[in-house]
Design a protein around this nucleic acid. Structure first.
Lengths: 327, 327
DNA sequence: CTGAAAGCGCTTACAG
DNA sequence: CTGAAAGCGCTTACAG
């Protein structure tokens, strides 16, 4: 950074004032064609780039958006991350990556977000605590929960239409002739889990069916464990709906390892449509999120000067059922 | 950012100078116990955080490290990303995430890296071009290629000991009695592919064996295609070594779908030991990278004031063979 | 140990 | 359209 080319040096080479150099790199500022040309040439020659620190400092606006993720968890997220960085890049923002270890944002992470006074933060796969929400609100940092809803947090949420999707899955399974059902869930408290459970069991009840509910934590291992128990306890049902594809794989493998055949003996449905669901050992029927639209809406909420700081809007976007070989 | 609390306000509340406030938040600066206490209390009350833009501007040092990744590709990378963010956080750095669409860094990405004059950049899963390398060198931005080597680029590289690992895999397969071999590769030009191919074929040759080499691109789909062709063309060998686990899964599934049994009819080995390799449909024998040590060394190289800007060091770290059910 | 002051590299009124 | 100047919020010699 010691050897950084400054606007001043560009100005000297171009024979204009430093202000003019700045104007060339500030969109919306008026510069004559000739000045622009001279500046651009000098800048190119010297390899000039406006210093973003100075820029953010003086404009009091950050070009950084915080992306909070839980690192290695569901392969569903990398897709969304990619989409976010691409869309934000188009709008001139860069991404500050926060990789939390735990379910909650760490103090150190919050500090980073605040020190850079990020333009906004996207929280993925983390059950943001009220404390985090309060912190963000106190510092007036717009935030949106992606694929999560935390009622009462006042944060914006953009999710898939979980409840309705789960109802659709229930109807699908009933239509396939299933009469007994199991729901294998995710981490308690996670809205995706709660909403899918609600939609699934309610729709089943509407048709006169009950539902066995098994606890989980969104991992393959928990899926496997549940699948194994289902068999070994003799409580296997006609159909199993797993809160995520990842858990569905575990369940499927536990079934396969025990000689239970899908879909002949049991129908299986997941949620997310991550890449592996189309691989031949699984070929899983599942429900796909409208990720592109979810990302676009998240960014819209985050960057809107008015809505971004208003009370949390909760959006549920419809996805689509993907029928494959497990139903 | 309009409503940001400044050191000046903290100073006023604490009844000290703004300099003293700054010193409290600058490690290594000397402040009396009493002053520190007053400042900390005032800062806490106001929710003060040093503005990182002002700090970076005046110190001419960035607390940002660029992490370049190719988004949704091999699940091997999210692990490394998590490790990087965690280790960098410990050292006081935050991560600027660059998600490239292509194999090469885009101009816009480079610009972001330069505008923030990042302290360093880690390039993962991207075959950095010479142009990129030149750019980084011109601006004196330390860079390390993670899991890749680009000879002649002058960039630091930290990789797994690919060649020796591939030799070990060859010996393992020979030891299992295999007499004919196939190598399914990755994207042409990728050092991981080149090195693993070299080690594997050379070691086989040393023992008097040849090797059929199939082209790939690191994807599951290419693995599947190759696996299918192997069977359909009647050129199946006793053993198959895939450049990555991801490709090995595709190969395995193509075999499975065609009734070929692993490891009875063909032995299969992958590379990376990503999560799915321990799942029961695969239970894949593979080779695991020493990710923790690779990350630690990368950061060491990046942040060392001397080595960071010297000519590229190329490091190969030994990993470990993981024997599972496919061999 | 502490305060006053200079200055990092920008943007943006303010005049002209 | 353009330049001189103020100022964003910090760190860090420099005195004391």
């Amino acid at each position: 950074m010691e050897n950084q080319v400054t606007a001043h040096e560009v100005a000297k080479l171009a024979g204009v004032s430093q202000s003019s150099v700045s104007r060339v790199f500030t969109k919306g500022a008026s510069v004559s064609k000739e000045t622009r040309k001279k500046v651009l040439e000098a800048a190119d020659q010297l390899g000039y780039r406006p210093n973003e620190y100075a820029r953010s400092l003086i404009t009091r606006r950050s070009s950084l958006v915080g992306l909070v993720m839980k690192g290695v968890s569901n392969p569903y997220y990398p897709h969304a991350v990619k989409k976010f960085t691409a869309e934000l890049k188009k709008k001139g923002y860069s991404v500050l990556l926060i990789d939390t270890d735990d379910v909650e944002l760490q103090m150190q992470d919050i500090d980073a977000l605040l020190s850079y006074h990020v333009a906004g933060v996207v929280i993925m796969d983390a059950t943001a605590s009220f404390q985090t929400a309060e912190m963000l609100k106190r510092f007036r940092i717009p935030a949106v929960l992606f694929n999560r809803v935390v009622p009462g947090s006042g944060l914006h949420s953009v999710s898939c239409e979980n409840e309705e999707a789960a109802r659709e899955i229930a109807r699908l399974l009933i239509g396939r002739g299933c009469e007994s059902f199991t729901y294998v869930g995710g981490r308690e408290g996670a809205s995706t889990h709660i909403e899918r459970l609600k939609g699934f069991t309610e729709e089943l009840k509407k048709h006169g069916f009950g539902c066995q509910v098994l606890p989980g934590d969104f991992t393959y291992a928990a899926g496997y464990r549940n699948g194994a128990e289902l068999i070994e306890s003799g409580r296997l049902t006609d159909a199993v709906f797993a809160v995520t594809d990842l858990m569905a794989y575990g369940i499927y493998d536990a079934f396969r390892d025990r000689g239970i055949r899908v879909p002949e003996q049991v129908k299986l449905v997941g949620f997310d449509d991550i890449e592996m669901s189309s691989w031949s050992p699984y070929n899983l029927s599942t429900y796909v999120h409208p990720v592109d639209r979810m990302v676009a809406l998240s960014i819209e909420l985050l960057l809107d000067p008015v809505r971004s700081l208003e009370d949390g809007e909760v959006h549920y976007l419809p996805g689509e059922m993907i029928l494959r070989g497990t139903t």
